[in-house]
Amino acid sequence: MIVMVSEDDGTKSDMIPQIEELRNDPSYLFTNRNLIYWENVDGGHDLDSLEMETNIHVILIKQDQHPLNIG
């Protein structure tokens, strides 16, 4: 799962502790390998930003052959 926020978004300071809490839950449902946090530099809350970011990272993931933890 990818959680993406614009680097200038005021909600990111609230999101980061929530993501860490999910990753640290004893159920191990989410980890840093399957719950990925991205800050979208100069991005917004639109489909174009999502597509641009995911296309760049999908290329990197395919090259590396495992999920990336960016952020």
Rank of each mutant, 00 (worst) to 15 (best):
M1P: 15
M1W: 11
M1Y: 11
I2V: 10
V3F: 01
V3R: 03
M4F: 09
V5C: 12
V5K: 08
V5M: 09
E7W: 10
E7F: 10
E7V: 08
D9N: 02
D9A: 08
D9W: 00
D9R: 01
D9F: 04
D9S: 05
G10H: 09
G10M: 14
G10P: 09
T11F: 15
T11P: 14
T11V: 15
T11C: 15
K12A: 03
K12R: 10
K12C: 02
S13Q: 13
S13E: 14
D14H: 13
D14F: 15
D14L: 14
M15N: 09
M15D: 10
M15C: 11
M15V: 12
M15L: 14
I16G: 03
Q18D: 13
Q18N: 15
I19F: 04
I19P: 03
I19K: 01
E20Q: 05
E20Y: 05
E20T: 03
E20N: 08
E20R: 05
E21N: 06
E21Y: 05
L22M: 09
L22I: 03
L22H: 00
R23W: 00
N24Q: 11
N24Y: 01
N24F: 01
N24E: 07
D25L: 00
D25W: 04
D25R: 06
P26K: 05
P26V: 00
P26H: 01
P26L: 03
S27A: 07
Y28E: 13
L29M: 10
L29P: 08
F30E: 04
F30Y: 08
F30H: 03
T31S: 06
T31M: 03
N32E: 07
R33G: 08
R33M: 09
N34R: 03
L35C: 01
L35A: 02
L35Q: 02
L35W: 01
I36N: 06
I36K: 07
I36F: 01
Y37Q: 01
W38H: 09
W38E: 08
E39V: 02
E39Y: 05
N40W: 11
N40A: 12
V41W: 07
V41T: 13
D42C: 07
G43L: 00
G44I: 04
G44H: 06
G44P: 06
G44K: 06
H45T: 04
D46I: 02
D46C: 01
D46K: 02
D46P: 01
L47C: 09
L47D: 12
L47F: 14
L47N: 13
D48V: 06
D48T: 10
S49I: 03
S49E: 03
L50Q: 11
L50S: 10
E51A: 09
E51R: 13
M52R: 13
T54G: 12
T54L: 15
T54R: 14
N55F: 11
I56Y: 14
I56W: 12
I56V: 11
H57E: 13
H57K: 11
H57L: 13
V58T: 10
V58N: 13
I59T: 14
L60S: 10
L60Q: 11
L60P: 03
K62E: 14
Q63S: 11
Q63E: 13
D64R: 12
Q65T: 10
Q65K: 10
H66V: 11
H66M: 13
H66F: 14
P67T: 07
P67F: 08
P67M: 06
P67G: 07
P67A: 06
L68K: 05
L68V: 04
L68F: 04
L68W: 00
N69L: 02
N69V: 00
I70R: 09
G71H: 00
G71N: 04
G71W: 00
